[in-house]
Amino acid sequence: MEVKIGVIDSPRELIVNSEQTPDEVETLVAAVLGGREPVLALVDDKGRKFLVQASRVAYVEIGPSDIRKVGFAPTV
C-alpha cells in the first residue's frame, strides 16, 4: 500500500510503498500524532526504514498502491 507523508517546510511529500496493512500504519500514525511516539517509523517493501520527526508531520495519506500501467493498449 502507498503512504504519503507531508513534511512541514518541504515542498515535496515522502511516498512510501509499504507491505504493512492500513490498520497498522494508522495505529503508528495515531501514536505519533497523539504524542506517544516522537518519531514516525515506516518500512517500505524493499526493507528500507523511513523516520520522520513527529513535530514535522503535516499530513499522512494512506491508500492502496498505485498500479501504473506501462505500454499501449490495443485500439478497437
Score class of each variant (00 low, 15 high):
residue 62 I to N: 00
residue 15 I to N: 01
residue 9 D to Q: 14
residue 65 S to L: 09
residue 53 Q to D: 05
residue 7 V to P: 01
residue 41 A to V: 15
residue 68 R to T: 10
residue 26 E to D: 14
residue 35 G to R: 12
residue 18 S to K: 04
residue 2 E to A: 08
residue 40 L to Q: 05
residue 55 S to N: 12
residue 16 V to A: 11
residue 14 L to G: 04
residue 7 V to W: 00
residue 51 L to K: 08
residue 26 E to K: 15
residue 61 E to Y: 10
residue 14 L to W: 03
residue 65 S to V: 07
residue 74 P to M: 07
residue 8 I to Q: 14
residue 4 K to V: 03
residue 27 T to D: 11
residue 39 V to D: 07
residue 42 L to W: 04
residue 3 V to R: 03
residue 12 R to E: 13
residue 66 D to L: 12
residue 28 L to Y: 05
residue 9 D to L: 08
residue 30 A to P: 00
residue 28 L to V: 05
residue 7 V to G: 04
residue 18 S to A: 11
residue 74 P to R: 11
residue 42 L to G: 03
residue 76 V to W: 12
residue 12 R to N: 13
residue 15 I to D: 03
residue 56 R to H: 13
residue 62 I to A: 01
residue 5 I to F: 00
residue 17 N to L: 12
residue 70 V to E: 14
residue 64 P to H: 06
residue 70 V to N: 13
residue 13 E to I: 04
residue 60 V to P: 02
residue 34 G to R: 11
residue 10 S to W: 05
residue 29 V to T: 06
residue 42 L to M: 04
residue 21 T to M: 04
residue 63 G to Q: 07
residue 21 T to F: 02
residue 41 A to Y: 02
residue 5 I to G: 03
residue 29 V to F: 01
residue 9 D to F: 10
residue 68 R to W: 08
residue 3 V to Y: 00
residue 69 K to L: 15
residue 43 V to T: 15
residue 25 V to T: 13
residue 59 Y to A: 08
residue 4 K to D: 01
residue 43 V to F: 03
residue 26 E to I: 08
residue 34 G to V: 13
residue 1 M to T: 10
residue 54 A to N: 04
residue 55 S to Y: 09
residue 68 R to Y: 11
residue 11 P to H: 10
residue 5 I to W: 00
residue 44 D to H: 04
residue 2 E to S: 10
residue 33 L to C: 02
residue 58 A to P: 00
residue 52 V to G: 02
residue 56 R to V: 08
residue 59 Y to S: 14
residue 38 P to E: 15
residue 47 G to V: 08
residue 32 V to D: 02
residue 74 P to Y: 05
residue 63 G to A: 12
residue 18 S to C: 07
residue 59 Y to C: 06
residue 58 A to T: 08
residue 69 K to D: 09
residue 19 E to I: 07
residue 74 P to S: 11
residue 50 F to W: 05
residue 40 L to M: 12
residue 67 I to D: 09
residue 42 L to T: 01
residue 6 G to W: 02
residue 53 Q to R: 14
residue 40 L to H: 06
residue 15 I to R: 04
residue 71 G to A: 10
residue 24 E to I: 04
residue 36 R to T: 14
residue 5 I to A: 00
residue 4 K to L: 06
residue 49 K to P: 01
residue 31 A to K: 15
residue 63 G to S: 13
residue 72 F to W: 10
residue 58 A to R: 15
residue 45 D to V: 04
residue 22 P to F: 06
residue 29 V to H: 00
residue 14 L to F: 02
residue 51 L to W: 08
residue 36 R to Q: 14
residue 65 S to N: 06
residue 40 L to C: 06
residue 48 R to E: 10
residue 74 P to V: 06
residue 46 K to V: 09
residue 25 V to F: 01
residue 49 K to M: 09
residue 53 Q to S: 06
residue 36 R to C: 08
residue 17 N to T: 05
residue 61 E to D: 13
residue 41 A to N: 12
residue 67 I to C: 10
residue 76 V to A: 15
residue 5 I to P: 00
residue 50 F to M: 05
residue 51 L to Q: 11
residue 11 P to C: 07
residue 73 A to Q: 14
residue 62 I to L: 02
residue 69 K to Q: 14
residue 32 V to E: 01
residue 76 V to F: 14
residue 35 G to C: 03
residue 5 I to T: 02
residue 29 V to E: 00
residue 39 V to F: 13
residue 45 D to K: 12
residue 62 I to Y: 02
residue 75 T to W: 12
residue 48 R to D: 09
residue 16 V to M: 07
residue 66 D to K: 15
residue 9 D to H: 14
residue 11 P to Q: 11
residue 8 I to K: 12
residue 53 Q to N: 07
